[in-house]
Computed example of a mutant assay.
Amino acid sequence: MTSNFSKILKRIVSDSYENYKYDPEFDSLLQKEHLHFEHFPAGTMLIQCQNPIYCICILVDGLCCTEKYNIQGRLLISENISPVEFFGLFEAVHPLPLYQHEVSVRCITSCTCLKIPVNHYLKELNTSIDALQISLQILSKFVYRILLQNDGLILNNARCNILLKLLECSDGKAFPYLLPMKKEELAQTLNISLRTLYRKLDAMYEEGLISTRKGKILITQEQYGKITAALQKELQNGTADDS
């Protein structure tokens, strides 16, 4: 039998926040688990690096930025993050006792999050195979993204970054999938110029990798397969684009 907690996680990772934020059935599941969404204005520091981990913070709406600083306080790494992201999950399940956050997280836009106490989350992982599988998928995507970020090719290849983001956003969703974020937000998430984004998207439209509806990116199930194949080809060829 699927637990209420697992049902919550499944809905969050498979659907857009806009589709369940006013859903009374979903709200009932949250109440049964004594959980609720929290809303934060732009500029809010959601997580402070080296602060103790009390909750798994799930970003379901908005745009955040993760920040890593050195001992002197100089910014080393900055990455824009869009939903869905589970902040604190990696640290909470790590075999070594990581009791503090490894990065800071700041709201770029207004954000909505679901904060789940660590003990509550870990208890569900020990009792629910569904919750465990979802968490493994989330962690797998996180590790894969980190590996790609450390690949010099990907860091300098806007096309690969766009293809990867499209796969991440549409993975597990019902098709056809309409990307909820605006193109300006997508460019900001990928740390590329809006001009570069439009140029790369135009090429993808011509290749049949994506479609458009009301100014937003639309991905069919067939196109999802094409995007996967295109990304694999880019990685195998090992050729960086000129962005």
Rank of each mutant, 00 (worst) to 15 (best):
D27T: 14
D242N: 08
G88A: 00
L35R: 04
R145P: 04
R159S: 04
D23I: 09
L148P: 07
F37E: 06
L166Q: 09
S6F: 01
G62C: 13
S14Y: 06
C111W: 06
T127W: 00
V13E: 05
I146G: 03
I227F: 03
I8Q: 02
E222P: 05
Q31W: 10
F40W: 15
L178H: 12
I217M: 08
R74Y: 11
M45R: 14
V143F: 11
I81A: 02
T212S: 15
N157S: 15
F37C: 09
H101T: 12
P95T: 05
D151P: 01
L164W: 06
G172A: 05
L179V: 14
N156G: 00
L209V: 07
G88D: 08
E234V: 02
I134Y: 03
N51C: 09
L186I: 03
L147G: 11
F86E: 04
A92C: 01
L46C: 11
Y205S: 07
S135Y: 02
F37V: 06
Y99E: 15
I146K: 09
L153W: 04
L190C: 00
I81W: 00
G225P: 01
N156C: 03
P97K: 14
A158S: 07
G73L: 08
I58F: 03
L76E: 02
A174H: 09
L75C: 05
Q50V: 09
D15A: 10
T66I: 08
K183W: 03
L114D: 08
M45W: 13
R145S: 09
K182W: 06
K183S: 05
T112C: 13
D202T: 08
S104G: 09
N80W: 00
S14G: 11
E25A: 11
V143G: 04
V13W: 03
A92Q: 04
M1N: 09
A203M: 02
I8C: 02
I58M: 08
C65A: 11
I47R: 00
C55D: 12
Y224E: 05
L59H: 04
T44F: 15
P180L: 04
S78E: 10
Q100W: 14
I108Q: 01
N237D: 12
D15K: 07
A240D: 00
T220P: 03
I138L: 06
S128T: 00
K10L: 02
Q149C: 10
C111D: 08
Y99P: 11
M45S: 14
L136T: 01
K173H: 12
A203F: 04
P83T: 08
